[in-house]
Amino acid sequence: MDSIVIALPKIEDAKKLRAVLERHGFSVAAVSSSGSGALSYLSELGNGVLICGRRLSDTGYLEIKECMPEGFEMLLLASAGFICQVPDSVLCVEMPVKTCDLINTVHMMLTQQERRRRKEKKKNKNRSWKEQNYISNAKLILMQRNHLSEEEAYRYIQKCSMDSGTNMVETAQMILMLFFEE
């Protein structure tokens, strides 16, 4: 789950920003007035966005950026004059903050993170030899009994899997069980 942490020099400002985000449907995990406090919260959470000011009570935004755990991105709230000095790896919203700019930027950041996670999850999905064997055997049965090509058999298993809400290995196992029951 994506988390939002807010770190601003004045804790009252951080709490006001949290209220704005929560009114727009976001969940804010924590607020802090120090970089060390924000980093402590980040280390407990999986991923998300750190919204911070350029200078906190104990450190600057670049030092925080260097120490942030992987999976978090920084959204810096800064004046227009300062934004031009910020590295490309840090997204910025100009102060004074316009609610629509903040909401749209946070939404965009969280959406991009979710897309990256889904893409990474798909990429890392390698089947074991045993799982691949179930699918291969089910394809062979479909090819022999229903006179399908290998591609058609694979697509059939894939479609049945999607229609039933099970993964392809479970669907292949069901096909094999049905065949051997006859």
Rank of each mutant, 00 (worst) to 15 (best):
residue 1 M to L: 08
residue 1 M to T: 12
residue 8 L to M: 09
residue 13 D to W: 02
residue 15 K to G: 01
residue 20 V to S: 06
residue 23 R to L: 13
residue 23 R to H: 15
residue 25 G to L: 05
residue 28 V to L: 01
residue 30 A to F: 08
residue 32 S to R: 03
residue 33 S to V: 06
residue 33 S to H: 07
residue 33 S to N: 12
residue 35 G to P: 07
residue 36 S to A: 12
residue 36 S to C: 08
residue 41 Y to K: 14
residue 41 Y to D: 13
residue 43 S to Y: 05
residue 50 L to G: 01
residue 53 G to W: 00
residue 54 R to K: 14
residue 56 L to W: 00
residue 60 G to Q: 06
residue 61 Y to K: 11
residue 68 M to I: 04
residue 69 P to L: 03
residue 70 E to D: 09
residue 72 F to K: 00
residue 73 E to Y: 07
residue 73 E to M: 08
residue 74 M to N: 02
residue 74 M to C: 06
residue 82 F to D: 14
residue 82 F to T: 14
residue 83 I to G: 04
residue 86 V to W: 03
residue 91 L to E: 14
residue 91 L to V: 13
residue 92 C to S: 06
residue 92 C to A: 08
residue 97 V to L: 04
residue 98 K to A: 07
residue 99 T to Y: 03
residue 103 I to M: 02
residue 105 T to I: 08
residue 110 L to T: 02
residue 111 T to H: 11
residue 115 R to N: 15
residue 116 R to S: 11
residue 116 R to L: 15
residue 117 R to G: 11
residue 118 R to Q: 13
residue 119 K to Y: 14
residue 120 E to A: 13
residue 120 E to T: 15
residue 121 K to Y: 07
residue 125 K to W: 10
residue 127 R to Y: 14
residue 127 R to C: 11
residue 128 S to Q: 08
residue 131 E to R: 10
residue 135 I to D: 01
residue 140 L to I: 10
residue 140 L to Q: 10
residue 148 L to N: 00
residue 153 A to K: 05
residue 155 R to F: 11
residue 156 Y to K: 10
residue 157 I to M: 01
residue 159 K to H: 14
residue 161 S to E: 05
residue 166 T to Q: 07
residue 171 T to H: 06
residue 172 A to G: 01
residue 173 Q to E: 01
residue 175 I to W: 02
residue 176 L to C: 00
residue 177 M to V: 11
residue 178 L to D: 11
residue 179 F to N: 08
residue 182 E to L: 02
